[in-house]
Structure formats: structure tokens, C-alpha cells
């Protein structure tokens, strides 16, 4: 288990794809002792990626475990480590420890309708889950995806949208915050779209991921629409170092985001303090 506990494997960059102006997607192969090794994970899990000599950052896995091959990470440039990642080229190596965290409860989600709600880079952890659901389409009910960003060019993974729309019983609702030239879709914040669509709870689970302010309003709206707390799933973010529940900083109450999360049901969140 060394590769989880502090000693990374090598993640060799195979290709880099631009997601938005400040976000790149790295497709990596995992190597151990110079040989490529398999890397299995669940939707919603993350890994600690590192640039040797600069540092480590927890990054969610955005590829899908149902599609073997390279592992994908979407990295937004926010600090020193991510800046260094953005300066890497195919062939370079990062360090990787993972997969870490609990991931989405996919087995319990089976048989349900699912409403995905994402904002900005928040689509990164959901993309893996969405593709998982679509790859196992018959296991799930109706799928709705509400996704928004500040502007059209900030919508991540736009190359996926057509495939998603084409999937059976699947709808994609895109929105941007303010009108923009060349944009014919919805305009408005994500919570507003959630309200407007007003998908009834019924047999439906909601999975939300995005900036805290978006999550705050979405959760309120879902509650108002009658969603039960255990049917609302979200992911949390917190400063992490070890990613394995030892360095002691990513707790909210007695829960550690890195091992007890990052995926939580709203019903769980209600049992822990509202502040960090």
C-alpha cells in the first residue's frame, strides 16, 4: 500500500488537452518500476498528483472506470503545483498516489433516475460518474444533466455534450451566467435552471458538484422541491496533504474529507458541524 501512503507511482503524461483557458486535461499512464500497471478506481475518487520538487495536489479523476486505458485528470491552474503541471509536456512524469476517497455509491444508485447538477470545473468529478451511468445505461433510470459556467468558453468537456445528449432517455441542460455572443442556449445561474426544470423527486437522486455558493442554493432548492436528504449527494473540498486520513487537516467535525469523503449525502452532512 506504499503507493497510497506517501510514496507515489509515476503518472506519465501521454497527452494534454485544453479544457478551458485555465484548465488542462492530462491523460496519464500509471507506471511502477518502469512498467505500466493497471489503475482501478471508482467514479468520484481522486488521486494525489505531484510535480516532483514542487508539491502534491488532490485532483479528482475525471475519466471513467468503465473505459480502461489512460486515466484523466482535469487540472485548473490555481497555485504553484497546478502551475507547474500546466508547464509539463507529454512524456513528462508526475507522481500519483491513489485512488483515494470513497467515490459515489454507484451500486445504491442503480435503478434510480438521476439528476446531475454541476458548475464550472465541478463537472470534472461528475464526468466520470455520468459516463459510468451511460456506459451502464440499462441499470439506471432517466438521466438529466444541468451544467453551467460563467461563459460558453468556460464550459468544460464540451466534446462530451453531443454524446450525452444522444444517449437514451438523457437530457443535457446547459446554461451560462450572462448572455454572450453566439450562445443560443439558456442563460442564468445553475440553481435557477434547477428550479425552472423542477424535476420531481420521485425515484430520483440528485448529484451536485460545483462552487460552494452554487451548492448552497441548489441544496436549498432541492429540499424545497421535496428531495430527501439521503437522495442528495455532493462532494466537498478541503485542504489536504496526505489524502489518507493521517495528516489531520481535512476534517469537518469527526469526518475526514479524504477518507470519509469526498462524496457525502446531505443526510450525512447534516450530522456534522456546519463550520469547519
Amino acid at each position: 500500500m506504499n503507493e497510497l501512503m506517501m510514496i507515489p507511482l509515476i503518472a506519465r503524461i501521454r497527452s494534454i488537452r485544453e479544457v478551458t483557458f485555465d484548465t488542462l486535461m492530462f491523460e496519464v499512464a500509471i507506471e511502477k518500476d518502469g512498467k505500466e500497471v493497471p489503475f482501478s478506481y471508482l467514479p468520484g475518487q481522486f488521486a494525489e498528483l505531484s510535480v516532483f520538487g514542487v508539491g502534491e495536489s488532490p485532483i479528482s479523476i475525471t475519466s471513467t472506470c468503465t473505459r480502461p486505458g489512460l486515466v484523466e485528470f482535469a487540472v485548473r491552474e490555481v497555485g504553484l503545483v497546478t502551475e507547474a503541471m500546466h508547464n509539463m509536456r507529454p512524456g513528462d512524469n508526475m507522481g500519483i498516489r491513489g485512488p483515494l476517497g470513497n467515490g459515489f455509491p454507484v451500486d445504491e444508485m442503480k435503478g434510480k433516475d438521476i439528476l446531475f447538477i454541476a458548475g464550472g470545473i465541478g463537472l470534472a468529478p461528475l464526468r466520470g460518474l455520468i459516463n459510468y451511468v451511460l456506459d451502464n445505461r440499462s441499470d439506471f433510470g432517466a438521466v438529466d444533466i444541468i451544467y453551467g459556467a460563467r461563459a460558453p468558453n468556460l464550459l468544460c468537456f464540451d466534446w462530451e455534450f453531443d454524446t450525452w445528449k444522444a444517449a437514451p432517455d438523457t437530457r443535457v441542460h446547459l446554461t451560462i451566467d450572462a448572455p454572450a455572443a453566439g450562445w443560443n442556449g439558456s442563460v442564468g445561474f445553475v440553481p435557477a435552471i434547477v428550479k425552472e426544470l423542477a424535476l420531481p423527486p420521485g425515484n430520483r437522486l440528485a448529484v451536485a458538484c460545483g462552487p460552494p455558493i452554487m451548492i448552497k442554493y441548489v441544496l436549498e432548492d432541492l429540499a424545497a422541491a421535496g428531495y430527501r436528504d439521503e437522495d442528495v449527494i455532493t462532494t466537498l473540498e478541503m485542504k489536504m496533504k496526505c489524502g489518507v486520513g493521517k495528516c489531520g487537516r481535512c476534517n469537518i467535525g469527526a469526518k475526514y474529507i479524504c477518507v470519509d469523503g469526498p462524496v457525502f449525502r446531505l443526510s450525512e452532512l447534516k450530522t456534522i458541524p456546519s463550520e469547519y
Partner: peptide, 8 residues
């Protein structure tokens, strides 16, 4: 930010 490419 796009990748830094320095020319000397």
C-alpha cells in the same frame, strides 16, 4: 494559462 514557451 497556456503552457509557457520561452524563445531565446
Amino acid at each position: 494559462m497556456s503552457r509557457v514557451k520561452v524563445g531565446v
